[in-house]
Design a protein around this nucleic acid. Structure first.
Lengths: 223, 223
DNA sequence: CCATGTGAAGCCTTTCACAGCT
DNA sequence: AGCTGTGAAAGGCTTCACATGG
């Protein structure tokens, strides 16, 4: 859990970080099963990637393995956590308390880690003032002041696409927002220094459907 | 809407398909605003990518643009739809009616397109027999027979990771499942010929958090 | 003998730059 | 003159293969 500097270069790409998160998740499971040693091959097999990929990824962080032996599970876990954990916990605000918003509030990953959803915002006054999965819902109008009050630095946007830019602009007026996790299909524009990550469920589904269409076509015509 | 063959080669990668879906979404909006002509530059600016990327992507589908002019919105939209739409509609079954499952049932994208969630499955008997966003919830036990009965070919898995593999295995016994959209953090193993796409919300959040950590570090030490 | 760490190779994706059509 | 379509260059990512050390 000790938080340390990110080693050497800033050359840890999004892609690599995504895998590091998966490694950490696996290591936590192995840890709880009292496995103390693991090889890059074993990690790769669990996650469906090549062992060389695992070794390359881990080598960016330093030399954590023992040749001929493998990696110490507790050691590697604590090193990964050090890299991935923030310097101090993040407070997250969720904007748009529809079905998806409620689902994310109920998601166990967003309770009490190094990041936490601390409040929700909505325009629907029947929701304002009530609690959802133990988090208060405030009026969207009060968002800028509540962001400052609660130390929120990140917004999760689960509004319809048509209002996503508007709520983000409102949040940005607080001057405290540095990151946005965007679940809407809108392409957000934000000032330099604010990071946006898009999570587009329907695009993922359509990629799957297209792969299935290709399969079907192959079955019908090729071979 | 006319469904046609995927042109030339199967070299449309997941990545390209993801962008094609975004282009189609933008074109639908332009269409509704009676815009009839669009350039690769305009598309790129809307979506935050380079015009050369847009042209390269579209060139895989054929020569749809007019040099010196741009692309016809209705023409390009219908061509993209032809590529992306399935030969016949897909029926989707949702497994695991927790918060996320309910959110996805409520998601407008999963009503009445070329793909549609037609039923949900859960072990919780207080949900079985009831309707959620107009879709029936059946007992998980009955999943294999309902899959056959309803023509389901795709599963959306929104169960806890600990049971995800089990419910997929159960679904596969029907012999009808060819694709899985996996929202759990479990790594699923499936037979050849079954496609899996993982959607991992917490990994996306952690990628954002890591980018923010790097920024913070840069602010503190560099420059 | 086993598994890591890593330069180099191979593969894939994006961007450039310009010929070609309107 | 404007914008597409596209080889070629540049840039990234993954895999190989082997030297290195336990």
């Amino acid at each position: 859990m000790e938080s340390r500097l990110i080693p050497e270069k800033n050359d840890l790409t999004d892609r690599i970080v995504g895998r590091l998160v998966a490694y950490r998740r696996l290591l936590m499971r192995l840890m709880s099963q009292d496995v103390s040693l693991v090889s890059s091959k074993a990690i790769g097999d669990w996650l469906g990637i090549k062992s060389s990929q695992v070794r390359k990824d881990l080598s960016y962080l330093g030399e954590f393995g023992k040749r001929g032996v493998g990696y110490s599970v507790p050691r590697l876990l604590s090193d990964l956590s050090g890299i991935l954990s923030p310097f101090s916990p993040w407070q997250i605000g969720l904007v748009g308390l529809g079905h998806l918003g409620e689902a994310l509030l109920g998601h166990s990953a967003f309770f009490g880690h190094n990041y936490e959803i601390v409040a929700a915002f909505d325009v629907n006054l029947s929701k304002v003032g009530h609690y959802f999965s133990d988090r208060p819902c405030y009026d969207l109008k009060d968002m800028p002041s509540k962001i400052a009050e609660l130390g929120i630095g990140i917004l999760m946007v689960t509004t319809p696409a048509s209002v996503a830019q508007k709520v983000v602009d409102l949040g940005l007026t607080s001057g405290k927002i540095i990151g946005v996790l965007n679940f809407s299909t809108a392409k957000l524009s934000v000032p330099d220094g604010v990071e946006v990550v898009d999570v587009d469920i329907t695009v993922e589904l359509e990629k799957l459907l297209f792969r299935l269409k290709l399969q079907e076509q192959r079955r019908l015509f090729d071979q």
